[in-house]
Design a protein around this nucleic acid. Structure first.
Lengths: 117, 117
DNA sequence: TTATCGTACAACCAAATGGTTGTATCAGAG
DNA sequence: CTCTGATACAACCATTTGGTTGTACGATAA
């Protein structure tokens, strides 16, 4: 189990990184198989440097990792990070459920003291 | 079932909206119970207009909805949108699984024609 | 060694972001 | 009607973002 608590900054970076189509595509591709930065750059119409920056953003968010192989840097998608993001969204679900639980309580108990309603 | 396909723009907006701590907090609060914009503004140290902008970003991403009630606008979190975001992340999982499936295939069949490897 | 490929990084630029203040509008209380 | 509270929205500003080009450097192929 990954206990590593995510800081607000971490969460910012994860969602920010996912908020760009090119970066999402890079994550998808690198989850399927590790690819070098230049191979990635060939996939898109922008410059090599631009792709490099996108990879850097993803790396900063730990959504991908880089690994030297000869003169290339292989980029590999990090599924764990995706799963952490999913758990973040789960927590929103929890908030919502807390609300309905509270309503259920109210109805079940039929408590005659509805606070500030 | 919600068939509504999300455009790339939609996805951009959803993740972008979630990439800010204040906005995530607004989503959490409004999932628990509908709150007016001014009540929300009281929760944070920034100006009313700033909070209003955050709500607008969330509304644009359809992560919250606004509903007039008297002279107030009640903000309500939209759980469906959170779930759509989760399904987006599921698809990354799918990509990864496709990769392992392919590897499994390779091993199981021990096919002597590994394409371009 | 030399040329080349893959990468890193700096400098620059336009557009978007996240905040501010100020002004206008609209609904409800007196 | 008038005052006030809640909202909307424009204008402005600093910083970040997403792209560019250019330069430098390490690893490999010839």
């Amino acid at each position: 189990m990954v206990v590593s608590e995510l800081s607000e900054q971490d969460v910012n970076r994860i969602f920010r990184a996912l908020a760009d189509p090119t970066r999402r595509d890079i994550v998808r591709r690198t989850l399927v198989a590790a690819i070098s930065v230049s191979q990635l750059a060939d996939c898109y119409q922008m410059s090599f440097a631009a792709v490099q920056k996108h990879v850097a953003v993803l790396e900063d968010a730990r959504l991908v990792t880089k690994e030297s192989r000869g003169r290339e840097r292989m980029v590999r998608g990090n599924l764990d990070r995706i799963r952490q993001a999913q758990r973040l969204l789960d927590r929103f679900e929890d908030m919502w459920r807390a609300r309905t639980d509270r309503l259920d309580n109210l109805l079940a108990k039929s408590d005659p003291a509805p606070s500030a309603l």
